[in-house]
Amino acid sequence: MVKLDINGQVHALDVDPETPLLWVLRDKLGMMGTKYGCGIAQCGACSVHIDGAVTRSCSLPVSAVSGKVVTIEGLSPDSRHPVQVAWLAHQVPQCGYCQSGQIMAAAALLAEKPQPTDADIDAAMTNICRCGTYGRIRAAIHDAAASKA
């Protein structure tokens, strides 16, 4: 039995402890906002927060999760997290598949560095977007930072 605190709710789950957190979220708990993209922590589509730190859940065995997990579904009760607001204003998503991960990465960056420089954004935002929304992501992060200042 594995115990997980996800978005403030504690789940006791009968799963193989080697199962990556991503597949527990998706196939056990039906939380589909966190995406599978590569399975080797390269693309970031599976990004969640664990105790506030952005983590790629596709390569993390569920037995190794010790902190509180927040997924895209739990980022904000009303989808009004400053990152989500800025994403909407900048019309960031195209296909949208990577955006849960991008938003989680941006939210973690802003929690750590409320006024990130371009270099900070370069270093933190390593998630892959095949549609090519990078320019708008950068602009939206600066906007979200300004709105919190």
Binding site: M32, L75, P93, G96
Partner: peptide, 27 residues
């Protein structure tokens, strides 16, 4: 004008084919 399909792409609600959930589904 803003896209009509943005809101669900900001909070994980957008259902892609990979996210489909059906009763008794196998993988």
């Amino acid at each position: 004008v803003p896209r009509l399909d943005t809101a669900d792409k900001l909070n994980g609600a957008q259902v892609f084919a990979i996210d489909v959930k059906l009763p008794d589904m196998l993988h």
